[in-house]
Design a protein around this nucleic acid. Sequence first.
DNA 1: GGCGTTCTTGACCGCGCGGTCAAGTGATCC
DNA 2: GGATCACTTGACCGCGCGGTCAAGAACGCC
Lengths: 198, 198
Amino acid sequence: MNRRLTQRGRERRQQLMSYAITRFAENGYHPTSVAEIVHGLGVGKGVFYWYFASKEELFLEILRDAQRQLRRRQEAAIADEPDPVRRIELGIRASIAWIDENRDVVKLLQFAATEERFAPVLRRGQDVAVADTARHVKEGIVEGRIRDLDPFVLSHAVLGVAGHLAREFVHERSQSVDDVAEAAVAFCLGGLMGSPPD
Amino acid sequence: MNRRLTQRGRERRQQLMSYAITRFAENGYHPTSVAEIVHGLGVGKGVFYWYFASKEELFLEILRDAQRQLRRRQEAAIADEPDPVRRIELGIRASIAWIDENRDVVKLLQFAATEERFAPVLRRGQDVAVADTARHVKEGIVEGRIRDLDPFVLSHAVLGVAGHLAREFVHERSQSVDDVAEAAVAFCLGGLMGSPPD
DNA sequence: GGCGTTCTTGACCGCGCGGTCAAGTGATCC
DNA sequence: GGATCACTTGACCGCGCGGTCAAGAACGCC
């Protein structure tokens, strides 16, 4: 399905993808039919199959796109910050901002994690993100500013907190992105730097 | 669909539910047909509709069951522990143990969160769990052992970490439940008690 | 204007879905 | 043994799904 596309074609493709995202997010992937998508856009069914080989391929495309975007966002945020701990903080903030701005896509990522068919694509993306964070965590450990626990576990914990708080408070409860990011950062830095009690 | 069931009937019902759980977890809710479920059990289709009004109702039943179980497990674990911080720790451990023992159901809970139709049932359960945790967090704050942040945010952060680490390391990477629980507890207690740096 | 390419249409296909139901089987109680 | 109730069967139904395709429309280029 790697067609030569004109400008017009590229726009149609984009239109299909973004409309599909909203329908999938609202209704679920399976319950949303191809007919529903093309009808909502006021075009014939052939348009869909001109741009995508199948409903499944469209969905995979959406997933890959989303992961690419998030990654770029995180990289841009971190840029050339030298302090590893601060890099982690910036990464958390960037992720939460992105989750805020991409509710629909986030829902699709969550769904994809529950279907064996889509999970592999997802895992690769997540592994990359974790590896990125883990690098900074390792540096932090070397500098003695983060406690000496498995960097992968710590990275996953950080991602778990950021993702969960963003979904719960930004998406579901419409709280301010900044407040939520603040709380996530505070909790994560506490978790990373420790001060285990008793 | 509140039928009078004999002992035999109750067993069939249970059999249908647990087999459906494994099929749904493996294949996804939508892609798994009622025909597939009854065929896998070697019974006629009528059996299914004798015990459940619809495929959707069966799924809701599974969700309610799961939440009830998890809650009971957490309550049992906490029992009459007087120390609030320790109660949180025991809750984390109990949750991770339950997630370990109920992979399939956990996958279904995750899926349910992505379909508008099922989300409400889920939210009620989650709200209860968060409220429980938040009670202990509040006590900890009063005692000055947990930093003075929004108890609901902290509770969600804790649940986010426990859930994510359990899924990632116990389910996906088959690591020891105890190790994962240990890490989750360490991170969460750090996040709760703070020691914010700079 | 002519021609090749890109794009669009919508009727159509076969299939398998969720759900129904008339008919029948087995246990239990009197 | 007959009545009642709990359970089981599987053919059947209508529908809407994902996907196809022959026929054209619109565009870009000479």
